[in-house]
Design a protein around this nucleic acid. Structure first.
Lengths: 187, 187
DNA sequence: TAGCTCATGTAACTAGTTACATGATTTG
DNA sequence: CAAATCATGTAACTAGTTACATGAGCTA
């Protein structure tokens, strides 16, 4: 067991925590709601579910059906819930949008304060990166209107980085404000 | 040969087109300029360079050094240039920011009009996706201020999707405007 | 009757990561 | 003297993709 990465495992734990289901159903869910960003083939999901079952994170309930193959309905078991709670509280330093989305949708199955702390960490990290990119922009491209050819292309790539970081920071600010209100309300 | 995907190969072709270099150097470049988004370990790069050499896309020039191992300086060969030009003109339907950044930086080594056409395709695709997300937002979350718990988290994930698509569309608009001016100037 | 949905999987392959190994030179 | 830089690689592993296979029921 490596216990690093494990992204799809955690996405599955979140989805099955929301509602038990078959591998087939999970594959379809990943195409839709969570799958705004995430995608996973049914082959991949079947393989991972098998591994998770062997590791005791999920339990299977085989349901016989007539006219079509037996269904294997998966449910998160106690060790799976514990693992999910652990992962939700732990920092994911390299997390992209997808992984944060999974953590958000998992927030109800862990500690809400830990979720907010994780979002704040990422907001800070992206704000720092944004600041760095803006400094590079100012230093290397003081007059962007006059750029042509290669330097123009380099500049445009940097602009992409800036825009992506801006989007990320704003999104995380929105999340933190909303989670804050949500917490106030629950108290 | 599969010829699908091949992302790292093309990033290497672009980087070596800008300037010949060793695998080690490529690994460092990927940490910096292009590597705003891209990253590749030296192990991976060495393996891919070997494959590309066998395929005739790059040529090696072994440079003896004293006190340290021989350098292998790689240069793009004619078939490599052809393959790069082919890929630059071809649509990459699933391309993310990184891949578009590579295509941008490669624009000088292919047909500029084809590069602009590819960017326009992506702008349209992202604009369409954005429109879809906005419709889902309006339909499923008409009063976002009152959301709590799970629906709130679902809403925030959707907001992330909207912000990312907005960023992408605006970036691609900026690219198209700049490429247009650049082309006008060259004529 | 052709194609989609439900429901499972195997096999082969491609891509990428992590750990390990070597060894001189330069910098703090 | 320790750590980083230059410069190469192998081996083992994890993750993900693509192609193939089966087969009933339902829909246009």
């Amino acid at each position: 067991m490596t216990l690093s990465g494990m992204a799809l495992e955690h996405a599955i734990l979140v989805s099955l925590s929301e509602r038990s289901g078959t591998g087939y159903e999970l594959a379809r869910r990943f195409e839709r709601s969570i799958g705004l960003f995430w995608s996973a083939s049914h082959q991949q999901i079947y393989r991972v579910l098998k591994r998770m079952e062997e590791a005791g994170q999920v339990a299977v309930n085989v349901v016989a059906q007539d006219g079509r193959p037996d269904k294997k309905v998966y449910t998160v078991s106690a060790p799976g819930r514990a693992e999910l709670r652990r992962w939700l509280a732990e920092p994911s330093p390299q997390a992209g949008v997808q992984e944060l989305a999974v953590k958000l949708r998992g927030a109800l199955f862990g500690d809400p304060a830990a979720a907010a702390a994780e979002m704040a960490r990422h907001r800070d990290a992206h704000a720092e990166r944004l600041e760095l990119y803006r400094q590079i922009e100012k230093r290397d491209f003081p007059a962007p209107d006059r750029l042509r050819g290669r330097p123009l292309h380099q500049y445009l790539v940097l602009r992409g980085g800036i825009r992506m970081e801006e989007g990320q920071v704003e999104w995380l600010e929105e999340i933190l404000a909303a989670l804050h209100d949500d917490g106030k309300d629950a108290r």
